[in-house]
Design a protein around this nucleic acid. Sequence first.
DNA 1: TTTAGGG
DNA 2: CCCTAAA
Length: 696
Amino acid sequence: MVLQKRLDYGFNGYQVPATPRATRSARRRGLFRKKVEDNQMFAFDLLATVAGKLLLEGEKSPDSVNTSNGKEQCVIAEDQVKNEGHAEDKPLKIEPCDQGNSGGSFIVSELSSQMPSQKYCLREFPRPQNDACSALASVITSDCSEKVGCAEKLVIGNGKNETESFASKVEVGSSGFREFNDRKLENETKRQIKVEPIKTGRAILNTGAGMFGSEDPVVWDGKPSVLVSSNSSAEVPPCRDNIPCGSFPLCRGDVKVVSRDDDDNSSGCTQPSTSTKSFRPLPRIGDRRIRKLLASKYWKVTPKLKEDGLSNVDGEVKPIYRNKRNCYKRQRSQRNYPFKKRKLLYCSSVSNSEGGNGSQRISDSPQMGINSDASGSGLKLHGGISTSASVAGQHTSFISRDSHVKLRIKSFRVPELFIEIPETATVGSLKRTVMEAVTAILGGGLRVGVLLRGKKVRDDSKTLQQTGISQDDQMDALGFTLEPNPSQAPQALCPGDNPFLLPYDTPQPLKRYPPTPTVAHQGTSDASPDPPVTNLCDFVESDHDSAPSPDTDMSIDKSVTDSKALVSVPAMSMEALAVVPVHRKSKRSEIVQRRIRRPFSVSEVEALVQAVEKLGTGRWRDVKLRAFDNAKHRTYVDLKDKWKTLVHTARISPQQRRGEPVPQELLDRVLTAHAYWSQQQAKQQLKHQSETCLLL
DNA sequence: TTTAGGG
DNA sequence: CCCTAAA
C-alpha cells in the first residue's frame, strides 16, 4: 500500500501490498500481535472500511455533499426502491470502465432478471468551472422517477454537464488526467474529510469533491445510512468503543463522513473521463473470473467463508470473514435488504500518531482527525483515505507554531487484487469476496515507511529535526508508504508449493506505466526515486510527476476460463506487492485470514460484565445478543474468551496487566460475578446429580 | 450451533 | 483469537 497523490476512483484505487498471513508459529511468537498492535491496524482498518462499505453495505445511503464554499455540490441520492431484490439474489456483472482511457475502473452491478427494464439515470450537478476538474465533483444521483433502480454516476469532465439515462448501463471512468493534475494540484489546498459516528450504524466513506463511490447500502441494521456532507466546521465525534475510525463499517455505531473542500482547486479530479458501458446478461456457464492485475503480479484471494448465503456455487470463492451475524436468526433478514448499485464511494479519515522514537501507534481516536491540531506529543499524521483525497498538489504539512510538525496524508491505496469468482455468484458474494481479499491483504500486516525526497528514512531513532523532515523546505518531499511487514513475508516468499505469482498468461493490462510513484502527501516532486529494491518491504518509490499514469488500468480478461474482466492497476513496482500465494484448490480451504485483533474497550468490558452479571457465565450466546448484538465483530466465543481473560486479569496484579487498563471496579465485578455464577453452576450440578440419583 | 477449554 | 471436542 502506498500513499499516492493521485486520484483514484473505484475500488481498484486502493492499494495495499498483500501481506502473507503470519504463520501460526509466527503468530504464536507474537509477531502477528505485534503487528496488529502497531500501526498496521491503521491501514487495515482503513481498508476494511472501504471494503466493508463496498461489501457489507446494503442499505441506502445518503444524501448530500456540499462543499463549504458551495462550489461543489454532490448529491447522492439513493433510489428508494427497496426490497426490489437482494444483492445476493442477483447475478452480477463486472465490467471495465472506459478501457479507452488511460485509467480505468470497473463497475459491478447486478443484473436483475426481474427488472429487465431497469433504468439508470445519471444526474449531474453543475459546478463552477474554474478548472477542468470542476465537474468532477459532481456525483450522479439516480433519477428514481421510475422507481426501478438507480445508478449513481460520477461525472468527470470539463465542466460539461450531461445528463443521461441509460438502461442497463453504468459506468464510471477514470482516465488519465495526470498532466493536468500534477500541475494543478500544486495549488490545491486542503481537502478534508471527516468521519463522524452517527447513531445508526453504518458508514459511508466518501471522498470529498471527487468522490466516486460505489456504495451499496448495506444493511447493517436497516437504519438510515450515511450522511455525506461537507461541513468545514463539523467535528469528528469520537468513534465508539475506541475502534479506529477507519473501521467504521465494522463498528457498532454508524458513521457519518463529511468531506470538506476548502479550495475550489482542490477538486481531486484526476481522471475526468466518463464513459458508459452497457451491461449484458451473464452467461451462466463457467466461472467468471475477475482479475485485477497490479503491476505484473497477480494476487489470488480465495476467501473462505461459508455462511451468509454465499452464493459460492462451486464453493470456489468464499469470504474469509465470517459474518457472525448470520449465526443468528434475526440476521437472516439481511437478505431482504434492498440492493442498489453504485460506485464506490469512499473516504475516510484516520489519524495516526507516531511516537518520537520510532515506535508507531495508532490512534483510535477520531478526534484526531484531519482537523485536529497536532498539539500533542510527537508527530501526528492526519490521514485520510479517499479517492479524491489522494490528489496531491497541496502543501499538507507545515511547522506549527509549537514546533510540531503537521502532516496530512492524502491517501493510502490498496493494491489491486486478483479475484476469481463464479459468474453465477451474486453481487453480494462478490462484495464479500472483495472484502475478503482486501482484508486478507491488510490484515497480514503492514508497516509504515517514511520517504524524504524519495529516499527512505530507515533510521527510526532520528528525530524529525535531524532528518530534516521538520524543515520547511523539506516538507514537500516527505512521503509515507505502507509496506508489507517483513515478519509477514516469509510465508509468501517461501518457495516450493507456493505459486506465489499467477501465471503470466493472463492478459496484460491494457496499459502499462512506469512503476508508480507512491508518494503520498505532497505535491512537488523533486524527490528522486530510490533505486528499485528487491526487498519485499522496500518497494517504495517516490516520485510524482514522472508517472503520467493513471492509477488504474483495466482490461478484460478473456482467458481460458471464460474470464470476463480483468482489471489491473499498473501503479506499483513489483516489490510493492506482497503476493498472496495462490493455493491449489485443495488448499484453498486452508486459507483463512486471522481476524484482526480488536481489543475490548472499557465500555465493551462494562457491557460484558453487566451482561454476565445478569445472565451468568454459561450463556454466551445470550450475552452476545443482549450486549453485543450490534457488534458484528464480537462473537459469543469472543465474549467468552474475553471473560476468561478478564477473570485472569482480575486475579493478577495490576503490574502484570497489559493493554488498556480496565477499571478495578469492573475487575472486581468480574470476580464477584464469576464467583457467583461458578457457585450457581456448582449448585446446579449438584442438583442435577441428586435428581439423577433419585431417579435411579 | 453453542459451550467449554486448551492453545 | 484460534481450534475443536462435545453437547
